[in-house]
């Protein structure tokens, strides 16, 4: 009965899915949008609990049992807790209650006025002492000689971006950007960019390098595998090897510059035999997937129900 209940629910949803695709009525559309954009989204969000739960369970068990390399499980659990804490309380862009920017010294705030001409395309920047002019005065005044001062390129781009992002139709803005001198370039840079522990810093400083280096190592493994295992043992392996060779040679500018026609030959391989094989596989896979989908919907394929009680 318990399995049947899940099957009925799944089948009902599948019928609705079919209706939503083939019936173009506005009420159907509206309800379908609500279901997809809100309700199912909420249900699906809880699935992460499954993943997190298994991760935490796996590592706590490892520590409990003193399994091999159990010490490292503390790193995973610690990183998970600290990252979630910083993320949840510090906010995605550092806007949360938890302060995520500290350390270093603020040079001071840049307090300058940005003058733009009536025509938005003519943007001029200059530093001015705000106490000397009222806002309106500056807006109406022509650019005073000598006040215009060359800003550093970086500063210019930061300010330009600010003015573009906030409101292009504004003619005058009083920007306050905390600035500091970069220890690297000696240029003036926005304060937050360098010293922070926001989730964005963690993303760029830990997630990006680890993730991309793991993928980058595949280049080395592939070279080693190519040297050891890519052998012309029989006709099929030979065909595979020759095809791979031509494709590789055809994408090296160093070679195609000297062997005319190689680039076109590579393109032919991709366009004709490769196309035929990929299309054949794609049609096969497509039919298989459609069949599996129908099997799931009609309750013939029940692997997703898992084992356990009836």
């Amino acid at each position: 009965m318990k399995r049947k209940l899940a099957l009925y629910i799944m089948f009902t949803m599948a019928v609705w899915g079919g209706i939503s695709v083939f019936i173009g009525k506005q009420t159907v559309h509206n309800f379908d949008n609500l279901l997809r954009n809100k309700l199912l989204l909420i249900v699906g969000a809880f699935a992460i609990i499954l993943g997190l739960g298994s991760l935490i369970f796996h590592h706590t068990q490892k520590i409990k049992r003193n399994a091999r390399y159990w010490q490292y499980s503390y790193i995973t659990l610690g990183a998970l807790i600290i990252t979630s804490f910083i993320g949840l309380f510090g906010g995605v862009r550092g806007e949360g209650g938890l302060p995520t920017f500290f350390g270093g010294t603020v040079l001071g705030t840049y307090q300058g006025n940005i003058y733009t001409f009536q025509d938005k395309n003519e943007l001029k920047l200059f530093k001015a002492d705000p106490s000397r002019y009222a806002r309106e005065d500056i807006a109406l005044m022509p650019l005073p000689q000598g006040v215009s001062e060359d800003l550093s390129r970086y500063e210019k781009s930061v300010l330009l971006r600010e003015i573009q992002l906030r409101n292009t139709s504004l003619q005058l803005q009083n920007l306050e950007i905390p600035l500091m001198i970069s220890p690297v370039s000696g240029e003036v840079v926005p304060f937050e960019d360098d010293f922070g522990v926001s989730i964005q810093n963690i993303y760029e400083g830990i997630l990006v390098p680890c993730g991309s280096t793991m993928f980058a190592m595949l280049a080395f493994y592939m070279c080693s595998a190519a040297y050891r295992a890519f052998r012309m043992r029989n006709l099929h392996a030979g065909v595979l090897l020759v095809s791979a060779f031509i494709v590789m040679l055809g994408q090296i500018p160093l070679i195609t510059a000297f062997i005319p026609g190689l680039h076109d030959f590579r393109q032919w391989i991709l366009d004709v035999p490769n196309l035929a094989s990929k299309r054949g596989i794609m049609i096969g896979v497509g039919l298989g997937m459609a069949a599996t989908s129908f099997k799931i919907i009609f309750g013939i394929e029940r692997a997703w129900l898992g084992g356990g009680e009836e």
């Binding site: 099957l7 629910i9 599948a14 695709v21 279901l35 497509g286 039919l287 997937m289 129908f294 919907i297």
Partner: peptide, 28 residues
């Protein structure tokens, strides 16, 4: 623990159904 099948069934049913015509059209 059998109740976990309910949310799985809900999402699986809907997304399986809408994927059939889409992939049939594009890939076949």
């Amino acid at each position: 623990s059998w109740m976990v099948r309910i949310p799985i069934g809900l999402t699986l049913g809907y997304y399986t159904a809408i994927s059939i015509p889409a992939s049939f059209e594009a890939s076949i």
